[in-house]
Computed example of a mutant assay.
Amino acid sequence: MGAQEVLLRVQVTGGGSHSYPWAAFLGVAAVIGAVVLLGVIGAEDKDSSAGSPAASSTYDISSEDPYAEQTEDPYTEDPFAEDPYDSGEEAPDPYESGTCLNGTLPDSTTAQEVSGVDEVSCSASDAHYQVIQTIPLTSDMSRCDANSATQYAFSYRYTLDGATLNEYVYCLIGLGSYAR
């Protein structure tokens, strides 16, 4: 402890049936307690010299700071701030019942690439279809067969780097000249 040397001697003797192993344990615990107590007393003795002046010095390194010209801290930057797999597009919300769509859907039950189908106001002149049911987590357009009002079925799959993120089937009715 500090400049003092503490020597411990522990002797364990073998005994007959009257030997108490817990007594040896208590003896060791007492010795450890004494060492801790001496350490605390020694620490208080060091603190008692607080009245004497302590040596101190100051040193201004601002003129010698090698990082003074650095504008960004490389350790505070978020390495995940930009997702390398993010295409910049948000996954679209599914169309709700009552939503109207424009564009032209192919009259086919086989999957085909369709573009130009967007949500529009139902009073718009180019509103061609109205969603009457949305079925999530499938691309099986035959699911609309259960809705007798269905005139068109439209499947939409949103993918990112080839992985399907979500997919929906929309059961539609035609509006105006698109009505069947």
Rank of each mutant, 00 (worst) to 15 (best):
V28M: 13
S63W: 03
Y59P: 00
Y59A: 14
I32M: 13
L26V: 05
P53F: 04
P79A: 09
V36Q: 04
L38Q: 01
E69M: 02
L105T: 01
G103Q: 00
L38C: 01
D45I: 11
Y75C: 03
F80Y: 15
P74M: 09
F80K: 03
E72F: 03
G33E: 07
S52R: 07
S97T: 14
L26A: 14
Y59C: 07
W22K: 13
C100K: 01
D60W: 14
S17C: 08
I41E: 00
L37W: 12
E44Y: 07
A29C: 03
L37H: 10
Y75E: 05
V36C: 01
G39H: 06
A91V: 14
G33F: 02
D78I: 04
C100W: 01
P74N: 06
A43S: 13
Y95G: 00
W22F: 10
Q70P: 00
A81K: 09
Y67P: 00
G51N: 05
P79D: 09
E89Q: 12
S87A: 07
Y59M: 13
L105E: 02
L38P: 00
L37Q: 12
S48C: 04
T104N: 09
D93M: 14
A54S: 15
Y75D: 10
D45T: 10
A23Y: 09
A91S: 04
P106W: 01
T76M: 08
V31N: 10
E82S: 11
T71W: 02
K46L: 12
D83E: 12
I61F: 09
D45P: 00
P66R: 09
T76V: 12
S63D: 11
K46N: 08
G103D: 00
D45S: 11
E64P: 00
E44M: 12
P53M: 05
W22A: 14
S56L: 11
C100E: 04
D83G: 13
T58L: 10
P92D: 07
A50M: 08
P66T: 06
S63V: 03
Y59E: 15
A34V: 06
D65T: 06
G27F: 01
P84A: 05
E82W: 04
Y75V: 01
D78R: 04
Q70T: 05
P106A: 09
A29V: 08
G33V: 01
G88R: 12
V35R: 05
E69C: 00
H18T: 13
D107H: 05
A91C: 03
T99K: 02
A54C: 03
G39C: 04
A81E: 13
L37D: 10
